[in-house]
Computed example of a mutant assay.
Amino acid sequence: MNPLLREIRQSPLLWLLVFVPAVFITARIKHEAHTLLFVLSVLAIVPLAALLSHATESVAAKTGDAAGGLLNATLGNLTELVIAFTALSAGQIMLVKASIAGAIVTNTLFMLGTSFLLGGLKHHVQEFNRVSARLQSGLLFLATIALLVPSATSTADPASAPFTQTLSAGLAVLLIVAYGLGMLFSLKTHPALFAGAGHGDDGEPPWPIGLAVASLAGVTVLVALVSEIFVESVQKAAESFGMTPAFVGFIVVSLVGGAAEMGSAVSGARKNRLDLSVGIALGSASQIALFVAPALVLMSYFIGPMPMNLQFWPGAVVMMMIATLTAVFVTNSGRSAWFVGVLLLMVYMVFAMTLYLMPPGASK
């Protein structure tokens, strides 16, 4: 426990951990203060993300960057799953779909772009394992095709709701199977293909593996609990800030839900461990597309007022497809510099500006 306490004492950012109990206390005694709860929940997630970042790096030091990135993406995506589960049980299916699409685009463009930019400002040219990046982007491309088909068929025949629901359930099973086979390929049958491209900076000594794993699990649970408060307050707070529902689900929810992973990805890039950053960003996006979204479709038959399908509004499908193709393009060489990150962030900013200015009914 001493390394954890020392980390908290030495990092001013972690002093924001006082907002973690503050948000729980406020939610209990003043649950109608939605704007205040929204701000407190965001401030609480920031230091939790920093703790999760250090714990992930410690685990990656023992397991390797590929497995470390997979572990962080898995635990980090529990936040997105909890946010979506809470919204789904409340019948906010459009918010669920917006958060799913937004998480895929945010992880692929914003998280990866920020890692390339900040890592490239410190290191002239960085290298990463392009085989691993190709696998993750390939899985992501498969998922976007599966998300495109229900949207395309429903647009052609608006009266095909039962067909779309049945198709979505079948596609959900196929995507989960594809994700499982992808993990089997990368971690069991061909792990040598996914070795890191560089050693990176040693930096501070890693935590003991027991403390690191316990911190990963514990902090992820805290992030999930804070996210529940966040999702309950975000809609009312968005109205007071003048944000559209599409912008809230696609940008705000995905940025807050992925804050923990973003901290780990950026920290890895700054230490010249770009395999860890790419593994977290693309691994998280592919997990959301291949596991979280299909799991929510299947879970919706048991919770919520109605089943959920994989039909997204056309703009969301286009953005996911563009984000995926952009990731395929920029990771093809296995090398990166800061301007590559700028390009990714510019594409993301185009989407964010469009959604912020979009009329409220345009995403239906």
Results as ranks from 00 to 15, higher is better:
Arg273Asn: 06
Leu225Trp: 11
Val256Tyr: 04
Val226Gly: 13
Ala224Thr: 15
Val278Gln: 05
Lys236Ser: 15
Val278Ala: 09
Val266His: 04
Gly283Lys: 02
Ala281Ile: 03
Leu225Asn: 14
Ala281Asn: 09
Asp275His: 02
Ala246Gly: 08
Ala260Phe: 02
Val226Asp: 14
Ala238Pro: 02
Val266Ala: 11
Glu261Tyr: 01
Met262Arg: 01
Val234Asp: 07
Ser240Phe: 00
Phe250Lys: 07
Asp275Ser: 05
Glu232Arg: 11
Leu276Trp: 01
Met243Thr: 03
Gly242Asn: 06
Val253Ala: 12
Phe241Ser: 04
Gly257Pro: 10
Thr244Arg: 10
Ala259Asp: 10
Gly263His: 03
Glu261Asp: 05
Ala237His: 00
Gln235His: 05
Leu276Lys: 00
Glu239Cys: 00
Leu255Met: 14
Ile251His: 10
Phe241Cys: 10
Phe230Gln: 13
Ala265Pro: 04
Val256Asp: 10
Ala246Val: 13
Gly283Ile: 02
Ser240Thr: 07
Gly258Gln: 12
Ser227Thr: 12
Gly249Tyr: 01
Leu276Ser: 08
Ala259Cys: 11
Ser254His: 03
Ala265Asn: 06
Ser264Pro: 00
Ala237Gly: 07
Ile251Gln: 12
Val278Asn: 08
Glu228Ser: 13
Ala260His: 02
Phe250Glu: 13
Ser227Phe: 08
Leu255Asn: 10
Ser240Met: 06
Met243Gly: 01
Ser277Glu: 04
Val234Ser: 14
Ile251Gly: 13
Met262Phe: 04
Val234Asn: 07
Glu239Leu: 06
Met243Ile: 12
Ser227Lys: 08
Gln235Gly: 07
Pro245Asp: 09
Gly268Ala: 15
Val231Leu: 13
Val223His: 10
Ser233Val: 05
Leu276Thr: 03
Leu282Ile: 04
Ser227Leu: 14
Ser277Tyr: 00
Val253His: 02
Gly283Cys: 06
Gly263Arg: 00
Ala237Pro: 02
Ala238Met: 04
Asp275Lys: 00
Gly268Asn: 07
Leu282Glu: 05
Asn272Val: 05
Leu282Thr: 05
Leu255Gly: 07
Arg270Thr: 12
Lys271Ile: 05
Gly242Met: 07
Ile280Tyr: 02
Phe241Val: 10
Glu228Phe: 00
Ile229Val: 15
Val253Thr: 14
Ser264Glu: 09
Val278Ser: 12
Glu261Gly: 05
Gly249Pro: 02
Gly242Val: 08
Val253Lys: 04
Ser233Leu: 08
Leu276Tyr: 04
Ile229Thr: 15
Thr244Phe: 04
Ser277Lys: 02
Ala260Trp: 01
